[in-house]
Design a protein around this nucleic acid. Structure first.
Lengths: 348, 348
DNA sequence: CTGTTAGCGCCTTCAG
DNA sequence: CTGAAGGCGCTAACAG
């Protein structure tokens, strides 16, 4: 008698299996799992015990289909191979871990069109929330998000246009203060370099320009923007470029510590003394900034906390307690280290 | 007459909507989308046109529920903030991009229990495939995977026990050759340091031990293992530790370039000349290894390709054309750079 | 090549 | 606090 083989599969435990075992209806098990308050305590206990014992794991697809909510929070990222963003990610994950929400990454590869497409896809999968990490939605994406069916949090410059809550720093200010610091230290012909970071390039440049203008030293030719991804190698290359194109250059503001490190190595190779002959300021305060020899001045942003708080906002928003326009400035700190500690030239 | 408001939602376009518009049945549209061959060319064209025009996007949850396949490939990673792994990830993503499969990351945080749990969850969601990146499944996970309902590829040491296809390098060999290289260059009291990398620590240590033993120089006290995550800071700290505990140490084999860079910086700080007084060998050949001053000797692994090939194997496996036991050794290269170029002491 | 018939596993009503 | 119906959107499995 092989009979009763109605459902060919090798018995995946379902909600009704559990329900039958406990002697209640499926919906009660469902509620015991998701809305603890709506089931009597001891029934709930029995149910949870059975769930455990039978090894029941909810089928997310079925749940998503029936409830019109995937329980997934989409993280839209411009790249996955950029260390600073990863710290933010980790903060988000740590906060979300155990909250019952899943995380889905969408890698836009710095490409607007891909972002539009990915966001479209994500939205079609009924996400519980969307977090933009280091990119602000623009263009078509922004439009589509105007009346998105889920909360949106974006980690970006506090002044950027937003479709939801915004958390981040004032990039222009950070860049301006870093530049001013170099000027204060007596550097004059300070160049700016930038690779392909996650999109805040414009604001950083603005801060640099503002500080340089205030000092009457602005020169557009001192801005070196490269489309290659930011890296140590790029930094080395760009130093040579600067020395060629900015006569008498005596410092550089880097939009990333990778670049700063590359600059430092290349200076050492060329026999340029840092900080005496040349000042270097980085951005992000990656771990090696403090360890480098000489140590690198850099703008520190509490990235991990940034992620954590963003996730926190998302969770509150999903409970409906965040006004869509909320903006949080998490602040930054300029760590003034050896790479910019030149004594001011006398009489300057 | 407000009538016919049966489905309250603001019209999400469904398969049947498209089907009705074209005048065919739902299943035909479904097939046109997934199995191009099984629908006549011009019907298919009309359908695709309608799909485009109406902005239809498949509901993955419904699809997963009905087909018992989520179309998602799970990537199990020990951490998301370790640069070398990210290159592998990028390779995987690049290959999978456009293949129609989605990618879902599971971060195990170096924790066996979390891995077990995550794999259990993943399996419950009917993944199309599972790729273990830099970790080999063990314990409960391995058992559970024995008769997994989907292909498995693991990126790890070629000799590691596997639940599916394996692709990677011979870690012991790499480590042994790197150690031998240092010995060849005349370094004698070569220490080993390791932080918390994605699990290949044991094999790397084995390679080091084998090489040291062959040379009659093995000393267990020279192995410094730290549980902190590998980082530049850790490298600096460990150099001081080595100088304290290994009298006359003249070199170190690092299990990561982070560590190597930290060692280098600390040497510079302490006035120890590299490579004359002290040799440094790293692992992974991160971009700064070649740029550092002096440049760092390191073991290069084609990580991006590794990822790409792993994804390729996965795709083949999903078509059922990879024997489960397949093992691919992708090889490595030892780049001998300045940090180990000491002239052999005369008479040694 | 195309259509019909039945669910996939869960959750939303709406009743008690 | 619990239960009974019905359907979410899609796709196997057969038919034609």
């Amino acid at each position: 008698m092989k009979g009763r083989q109605t459902r060919g599969d090798k018995s995946r435990v379902t909600l009704s299996d559990v329900a039958r075992a406990v002697g209640v209806s499926a919906i009660t098990v469902s509620r015991a799992l998701r809305a603890p308050g709506r089931v009597s305590p001891d029934l709930r206990a029995r149910i949870l015990e059975a769930v455990e014992r039978m090894g029941y794991v909810p089928d997310l697809a079925a749940r998503a289909l029936a409830s019109r909510d995937s329980g997934v929070i989409g993280l839209i990222m411009p790249t996955l191979t950029y260390l600073p963003l990863l710290d933010v990610m980790t903060g988000i994950e740590d906060r979300l871990c155990g909250s019952g929400f899943g995380v889905q990454y969408a890698n836009t590869r710095f490409d607007q069109a891909i972002m539009d497409q990915q966001v479209r896809m994500l939205l079609a999968q009924r996400p519980s929330g969307l977090i933009f990490v280091g990119v602000a939605p623009t263009g078509e994406t922004l439009t589509r998000l105007r009346d998105a069916p889920c909360p949106i949090v974006q980690i970006s410059d506090v002044r950027s246009e937003g479709a939801g809550a915004v958390i981040g720093i004032d990039t222009e200010l950070a860049s301006r203060m870093a530049t001013r610091h170099m000027l204060d230290k007596g550097y004059r012909r300070v160049a700016l370099i930038d690779g392909r970071p996650p999109g805040r390039g414009l604001l950083r440049r603005e801060g640099y320009e503002n500080a340089m203008r205030e000092a009457g030293l602005y020169n557009p030719g001192w801005e070196v923007l490269d489309d290659a991804p930011s890296s140590v190698i790029l930094g080395s290359r760009l130093l040579r470029h600067i020395l060629d194109t900015v006569p008498g250059a005596d410092g550089v503001l880097c939009h990333n510590d990778d670049l700063a490190l590359g600059i430092l190595f290349e200076c050492q190779r060329l026999g340029i003394r840092v900080p005496q002959d040349f000042g270097i300021c980085g951005f992000n305060d990656l771990d090696y900034a403090a360890m480098a020899q000489p140590s690198l001045t850099s703008v520190h942003v509490p990235r991990y906390d940034l992620g954590k708080q963003a996730a926190e906002m998302m969770i509150r928003a999903m409970r409906g307690t965040v006004p869509r326009g909320e903006v949080v400035d998490i602040g930054f700190t300029l760590f003034e280290r050896q790479s910019t500690q030149r004594d001011r030239p006398a009489g300057d």
